[in-house]
Simulated scan of single mutants.
Amino acid sequence: MTDGTNPPSSPQPEPAHGSGGYGFPPGPPAQSGYGYPSGDGGYGYPQSGQQPNPYQQDAQGQAWQQDAGQPWQPAPGPAQPGFTRLAGPEIAGASEQPDWEAMADRSEAARRKKKRWTLIGGVTAVALLAGGGTFFLLAGDGEGPDGGNAQPSQSASPEPEDSKSPAAYTATVAGDDTLLRDSYGSMGIRLGPDLKLGPLGKRFQVVGRGNGNSWAQSAEPVVDVTKSFTITARAYSSATKGSRIVMSQGDGESFSFELGVNEVNGKQAWIFRVQTGDKGAAATTRTVTAEGVPLFKKATLLMATYDAEKKNIALYVDGKKAGETEVPPIWQAPGPLQLGRSKHHNIWTGPWQGALHNIKVYNAAFSAEQAAAYKEGKLGPAPKPTHAWLLT
């Protein structure tokens, strides 16, 4: 099912100078805007001979450091050990978040049970001789898990070597608890003030409060929208109305793509929308929606794809295709990947309220079979993500 219009969004007020709004530090703004270090790189990207961007992590997962006098410098701190809980204030509403790891354990146990029943057979007759009589035990139908409601196991997709052991995994770069570590690349994601890192069993998630500071962003664009791609995340929305964006890309006049929640026909629905024109007009957007799917306080696996060869986009919810539609080439908006917000007509909209984790980017468009396999933890070792954050 498609929807070619932009439902009403929730614009966020622009912050006053020096107020620290949208998560930028108080005081005079940097000359290059958006709080990035000054320079000629646009969007805060470093140029030759200048200091590296503070959002970027190096090949060893360390945060870049800057000399004194630069506009931004991460606060010093100890290297993050194992899965030690990170310092910081308690997260509002964290107690309402799902225990993803426990759900995964239950799903794995149910999957093993179903496999045993499959080996035994739909109906297994066991002859028991007792007092000359013959009795039968029947393995009835319906004893297996509900596959539609089962959550993905922790082996939902291949992970890097350093994340197979819970003790080895860290969600942020060493010494900087506000920069999410890229497990497959080197693109850290800087957390805004109200998108907080919190525990998720032995791993981590981020939790947004649904206000103008509930966002995060990378230093540079992550997805090449001129080529095929797949983006996926596990989301838990605690908002009952309005636009709520899981991720988007672009910080100029408009987004290139956005994945999240919008109101469609008066009700909230999961959406995947792309922009095909450089003016950000509703007439040049293409949208796939998943209407009638429960999403309030429900752990949901979202996946969106763009096939550059077939020129179409598709949306999958918990491994099932919600819809697809043909699209013209996607407009390559300037600016980085965003978590928890999207740009509409030069205004930030869709602040995220709820939890996010297991965010991945692939440079190929998944098929319906691959999307289903990913949900069931049977995707196999390929394809591999190009970037990944907050793995489980």
Rank of each mutant, 00 (worst) to 15 (best):
K227E: 13
A219E: 12
Q62R: 10
N211V: 02
L339M: 09
G69S: 13
D3P: 02
L379S: 05
A239K: 13
A174F: 04
K378H: 10
G33F: 11
L379Y: 00
A233T: 05
L128R: 13
F136G: 09
Q70G: 14
M103Q: 15
S186N: 14
G142N: 13
G131D: 13
L302K: 01
T134H: 08
N211Q: 05
P71E: 06
G335V: 01
A59H: 08
T305N: 15
A168S: 15
M1H: 11
R203V: 00
G377F: 06
P74C: 01
L179C: 13
G23W: 00
P98F: 04
V317W: 00
Y45I: 06
P52Q: 14
S183C: 13
P199Q: 06
A233K: 00
Y22T: 03
P381V: 11
S153L: 07
G18V: 01
P71S: 09
D224I: 05
L337M: 11
I245N: 07
D177M: 03
G175N: 11
A130K: 14
A322M: 00
A139P: 05
G185W: 02
I91P: 13
G4T: 10
L391S: 06
D3F: 07
S256T: 08
K384V: 08
N346W: 03
P383L: 06
S183K: 10
A110W: 05
A233C: 12
A63T: 15
P15R: 04
A59M: 06
I120W: 07
A130E: 13
G242W: 08
I189D: 10
K310F: 06
A283S: 15
H344F: 12
